[in-house]
């Protein structure tokens, strides 16, 4: 099977980074892998006409964010081209506040979560987030503030020091 060497090189070099991004977007490895696969397939379809000034990685990342919030995605998931490793038994996020945050994120609507990922993981500003998701800057701001409000409720502030003795202490 002939594969465009430049496409193969891109996947080899950037695929894992896209999967990390997919994982924080989706919150679980299956949906993350599905997002990466769909985005790379779309990129593959567009590859012959992707102009040199267009950046394939930002194309893929934009595709993933949009796919993640698209309503129709919730109804179907494609067969993955690879098998994910069996679910691992170690706790992915051992520390208390990060684990609670990760769990609270799972309760957010997809669009709100996507806005937070773009802002705090991708470090984009609101104008860039608006462009990626195809929504207005006002919507970005309102989604972000609503999401932060929910997270504040779900993850109460804790003392920054960590250790067995601090738990339950009143600050």
């Amino acid at each position: 099977m002939e594969v465009d060497p430049r496409f193969a090189e891109f996947v080899a070099q950037r695929g894992d980074a896209l999967l990390r991004y997919g994982y924080v977007l989706a919150g679980n490895p299956h949906d993350a892998a599905d997002l990466v696969q769909e985005a790379l397939l779309k990129l593959r379809g567009a590859w012959p006409r992707l102009r040199s000034k267009e950046n394939p990685e930002s194309y893929a990342r934009t595709t993933m964010a949009r796919l993640h919030i698209a309503a129709w995605r919730r109804r179907r998931r494609e067969l993955l081209a690879w098998d994910l490793p069996e679910s691992e038994h170690h706790d992915p996020l051992p520390s208390g506040d990060e684990r609670r945050m990760w769990q609270a994120l799972a309760g957010l609507p997809r669009k709100q979560r996507a806005v937070l990922v773009l802002r705090y993981y991708e470090q984009l500003d609101d104008a860039e987030i608006a462009a990626v998701l195809g929504i207005s800057r006002g919507t970005v701001r309102s989604q972000a503030s609503r999401a932060l409000g929910k997270l504040r409720d779900a993850v109460p502030a804790e003392p920054m020091t960590r250790g067995p003795m601090t738990r339950g202490n009143v600050r």
């Binding site: 099977m1 193969a8 996947v11 994982y23 081209a81 990060e98 945050m101 994120l105 705090y120 993981y121």
Partner: peptide, 22 residues
């Protein structure tokens, strides 16, 4: 949290470009 979680993401398999091509 995002930074830590990203580090826990699974890795992509080898030969993914060929599989995607298929």
């Amino acid at each position: 949290t995002f930074g830590e979680a990203a580090g826990q993401a699974p890795r992509l398999p080898d030969l993914l470009p060929e599989r995607l091509e298929r």
